[in-house]
Design a protein around this nucleic acid. Structure first.
Lengths: 205, 205
DNA sequence: CCTCGGTTTGACCGTTTGGTCAAATCAAAG
DNA sequence: CTTTGATTTGACCAAACGGTCAAACCGAGG
């Protein structure tokens, strides 16, 4: 392992290559399903070389996961009390849907981790994520109390957005199997927009 | 392995015990994450004994999965052209939600399989499932054309029901982490019912 | 050119895992 | 009780896997 001095050019490049390959393999096979040899093959490096840059397979997984967590929670932060309530939520939905389209591996890795009980990120969910959702749910509840949004359970509204948007990435094969050759993301944006407009438009509209 | 004659009482009992244990372990660890020893421990039998009843670990997985598939697609079959459109869909939604509550292991096993690309059931999805969904989507489209349901993309409507209801089983830990000690299924039925009423109620209502 | 720290790898190790097998045990029929 | 086929298991095997290590390699500074 390199000293804890400033990383060299080669170190930066190889670390990125490895993380990229690890994301590929972990997201499609899960942690236990993935092997270091597979990751090495995808990265185009030898197995001992991977273990020169990361102390263990678990360290690779943790690195991929923590890097992912940071960007994964980001879209929710963009939801702010200013601006039109419905448009705020719709743009959050659109953002999440585009992340599913553009970063399906990240979505699947996250799904894998959660489905298996989130053994490694349970703490983050119960603290950081909960705090963030509490905060945004309060914003939504505020809009509802002000009559600017039809009444809904704010937490379950957020859950519904997660499940709906991530479904297109996580269950991609199922969606494709049912739709035939049609592109799943063709009609999805219109559908979710319609759904949340009808769900959330205040009564008078 | 037993002959292919009529199964004895012991065979029936042990096969069921093993499948139950296998569902437990496969659903929480995935196929590669599960070990035959784990399943044996849960079943209270020895490892060679499991392999006396099933030729391989994969055979156990296939048995669990195919048994699951049959019941999993069943709720959708209950959706029939007769009866009130909105109520038909709402009762399908309620059925799916109860399955998530009562059979979370099945839901998670299915999710695991799909997320990892559905290597073993791809064929079933592209034939049986697609055919069933095609049929039901046509029913829904018929209701829409008759003005008895607000216009929506029928396929994506079905996807949304799957994702929403299964989310409570598959992402259980995440939902619980965010909600604190609150029971996720307490408010869920009301939420989904509200959602689909607002989405689907015909314009004039 | 040489040096030296960073980098790469072939060979290897201990453990885990899926699966086998012969021998032991059990249970039902005669 | 005895027999016979079904059932159970301790011991074992080969392959796969995560990880180690000493030796080789490489590239930038002197």
């Amino acid at each position: 392992m390199p000293k804890d001095k400033a990383p060299t050019r080669i170190q930066r490049k190889n670390r990125l290559t490895i993380l990229e390959a690890a994301l590929d393999v972990f997201s499609s096979q899960g942690f236990r399903g993935a092997t270091v040899d597979q990751i090495a093959a995808v990265a185009g490096l030898s197995k001992p070389n991977l273990l020169y840059y990361f102390p263990s397979k678990e360290a690779m997984y943790d690195a991929v996961l923590s890097q992912l967590l940071y960007t994964w929670l980001d879209p929710l932060r963009t939801l702010t009390p200013e601006g039109d309530p419905l448009e705020e939520i719709l743009s959050y939905v659109r953002l999440k849907l585009e992340m599913s389209r553009n970063y399906p591996r990240e979505s699947r890795l996250f799904a894998n981790e959660i489905v298996q009980g989130a053994p490694r990120i349970h703490q983050v969910l119960a603290t950081d994520l909960k705090q963030l959702v509490d905060e945004k749910a309060a914003v939504i509840q505020g809009w509802i109390d002000a009559g600017r949004l039809a009444p809904v359970h704010p937490y379950h509204l957020i859950f519904s957005i997660w499940s709906l948007t991530q479904h297109y990435a996580d269950f991609d094969v199922q969606v494709r199997a049912v739709l035939g050759q049609e592109d799943p993301f063709a009609a999805a944006p219109d559908f979710v927009e319609t759904l949340y407009r009808r769900l959330l438009s205040p009564a008078g509209a």
